[in-house]
Design a protein around this nucleic acid. Structure first.
Lengths: 162, 162
DNA sequence: GAATGCCTACTCGGATAATTACTGTCCGAGTTGTCTTGG
DNA sequence: CCAAGACAACTCGGACAGTAATTATCCGAGTAGGCATTC
């Protein structure tokens, strides 16, 4: 089981959009060029973000995407769930019901014990993702990246932002 | 991204094998019949457990599988990794290197900040799974299930255990 | 009656198809900025 | 010179193929128990 590569792309796009001044938009074309990924397919990931209300879109020339909320109010979990969907990574198919020793009309009062453990782990995963916001990421990136690259990247993006 | 259904099957099989008396074996045929899943495909999941050293196998009539370790020393994580593989759910493809504003020879001293967060979440997931052993599961099941079903199931299994 | 050797039936393990999900691509509907034209 | 209208280019969104991974199946190598045979 692997996360889609769209998750990675979506997160990187959000990181870029976090640096955009209020009210400016950046097109899927520019985002794909910046990250070196196919434009059309990246569009699908951004579409997911749009449906989830994480980004706002505008059409026409100088149109594109911007964050729909302050970077501090968008978490990794929001982005991941927007692309991957919200359902648990573990699906319980209730095979315990196939046990030949069970009465046919027997009804369990609790979810399967195995599923409970798997879901708890899934919850821990989501909690970790929910604890980090795009603002946190922005701060980390500013510490990690050389100022020169950051400056040039910002300039590059502003040149293309509508 | 979904976990394979083999993960679920493998865990249920381990739960059953935990209840088996020392030295007895249970065949893939019986395990598949007990859980109502295709025999041949279940075999592949058990094969994974075998390669990981979680179960021990014997051939011939009255052959099959048994746990290779005490139930208290086998964790959910062991079983999940035996079937799913050990690599992280998130793969960083280093698209940050495609940034057109980077010097071509620039070399990052840290892993990508986004990947670090995703890997941390993955780690939290694994830690939760590593905290629960098959012995814990066995105890939970004995509390959850009616004694009657447990007794009949054990009897059913012992009838078929070699 | 007991021991030995052969045989059969059953086991797991890896190699082979069918299905599903992911990855990537294309085209159409809609909007905004620009240019032309007229007042 | 200014305003209005038409145009063109660019945008996103959903519909359409190609590829990889998961799901399912089949067959062969190997082993342990059972049975017949012999002593």
């Amino acid at each position: 089981m692997n996360l889609k590569n769209q998750v990675e792309w979506a997160l990187h796009c959000c990181a870029v959009l976090s640096n955009l001044p209020e009210g400016r938009y950046l097109s899927a074309r520019s985002l794909s060029e910046f990250h070196g990924v196919p434009k059309e397919y990246l569009g699908k990931a951004l579409q997911g973000l749009s449906k989830a209300g994480i980004v706002h879109t505008t059409l026409g020339p100088s149109g594109g995407y911007r964050l729909a909320l302050p970077a501090g109010e968008i978490t990794f979990l929001n982005v991941v769930e927007a692309v991957e969907g919200r359902k648990s990574t573990f699906q319980c198919s209730e095979i315990r019901a196939n046990n030949p020793c069970r009465p046919g009309d027997f009804c369990d009062d609790k979810p399967c014990a195995i599923a409970r453990v798997m879901w708890k782990a899934d919850e821990a995963w989501r909690q970790t993702l929910a604890a980090v916001s795009l603002a946190d990421l922005q701060q980390t990136l500013q510490q990690d990246l050389p100022a020169e690259i950051l400056r040039r990247s910002t300039e590059w993006l502003l040149d293309r932002a509508g």
